[in-house]
Amino acid sequence: MSFDVATYASTAQPLRWDDLDLGEFRTNRLSEGALRCLQYMSDVETHTVCYLRDLLVTPSHLDPEITTFLTFWNMEEYWHGEVLDQVLEVHDVSTGPDHTEALRKRLGWQDRVSPIVQSVLANLLGPDFIATHMTWGAINEWCTHAGYSRFITVEDNPMLTEILRRIAKQETRHIAFYNSQARERLENNPRAQRITRFALQHKWGIVGSGVMPDAEVRHLLSYLFGGPDGLAQARKIDTKIDNLPGQEGLHLVERELRRYGIAG
């Protein structure tokens, strides 16, 4: 069954947390390792608008269903970053516009060139590029959802658990869209399968790795996916990727754990 974009657009909404007392974190504080992960996740969620910028110069912008979805996807991701920032502020961790501006400036010239390069390559490839975009999105959403689920288990803080469950519930619909689109665009399209497979093999990295310093990526992966349970979760994501047309055997997530020294 295909994803109903109209229903999604009419029901998408900012994440609610006005019924939660975040002051509880003052007496039941998160660990330093958790706060470091939370900062990473907040920065990545806040950076979503920059991913959107890069995508709107590709053939994806010609599809009205995709642009409708991306509009509300970006809105929901924005509020995910906002609530994570609120949790960080309770713990006296710096957030806000100045922090976000510094993050974007740190990326330097590569961030300014990225949309130009992507536009040229994507438009040369034509509509088959959209399959790559949708597959990439599905994998990133699978990883993000798994990361929030692992965070709940590893940190075991009731207030954090409630917040992350609310975020993960919205991420589930994001997964449904990207997964549905990826399958439809890869099915019976060998060229799209080859383009997507090449891009994933040579360019894909764990969510946030193009934005955050290597030390922070390594910490996040170690905190959330270290040990046998984390590796098992990574392999579950890789199995989902295997089931996409023409994408079997890539082992992308496990490859990232090994690249950062998390799995032997």
Rank of each mutant, 00 (worst) to 15 (best):
Y223H: 13
I163Q: 08
H133D: 08
E162L: 10
T100Y: 05
C50E: 15
D19P: 08
K236S: 11
L20G: 01
Y148S: 02
H251Q: 08
L55G: 13
M75S: 09
L164K: 06
T172L: 08
T95Y: 12
I206Y: 05
W142G: 08
Q247L: 10
Y51Q: 04
D238V: 01
S149F: 00
E101N: 03
T68W: 12
E45V: 09
E141K: 04
M75P: 07
R106P: 01
F69R: 05
E77R: 08
H47Y: 15
N123Y: 01
R29Q: 14
D229Y: 07
D156Q: 13
A9Q: 11
L30S: 08
T67I: 14
P158K: 09
G227Y: 05
Y51G: 06
L30Q: 01
I66G: 03
E256P: 02
W79K: 01
D98S: 11
N179Y: 15
V253W: 12
R104P: 03
Y78S: 12
R191Y: 00
R258N: 00
I130P: 06
D98E: 15
T172D: 06
V93K: 14
E77P: 02
Y148G: 05
A176N: 09
Q201D: 10
A234N: 00
V57C: 04
R26I: 05
C143K: 05
L35H: 02
E184N: 06
S119Q: 14
F129D: 03
D21I: 11
A199I: 03
R53T: 02
V253K: 02
C37Q: 08
R166D: 10
T71I: 01
P64A: 05
V49C: 03
S10H: 12
R173F: 02
E162I: 14
R218A: 13
L70F: 02
T11H: 10
C50T: 15
T7W: 14
E24W: 04
S10N: 13
F3P: 05
T239V: 03
E45A: 13
V49Q: 12
S10K: 13
Y178R: 10
A34N: 02
L200W: 06
G205L: 13
L88Q: 10
E187S: 14
A12L: 06
Y8K: 09
A232C: 01
T67L: 09
H91T: 04
F69Q: 06
Y40K: 01
R150Q: 12
S222V: 01
F69I: 04
D18G: 05
D98N: 14
H202I: 03
T239A: 14
S42T: 00
Q181L: 13
I237K: 07
P64N: 03
I130G: 06
V211D: 07
Q13V: 11
V44G: 08
T172K: 05
E82C: 07
H251G: 00
D92E: 13
N140T: 03
P64I: 09
D229C: 12
G33C: 00
L221Q: 01
D98T: 12
V83N: 06
L22A: 07
K240D: 03
A215S: 03
Y178V: 07
I241P: 06
T144M: 01
V253L: 11
D98R: 15
A102Y: 02
T11S: 12
D156G: 06
G96T: 09
E89P: 09
R36D: 04
W142M: 12
H202E: 11
W136N: 04
T172V: 10
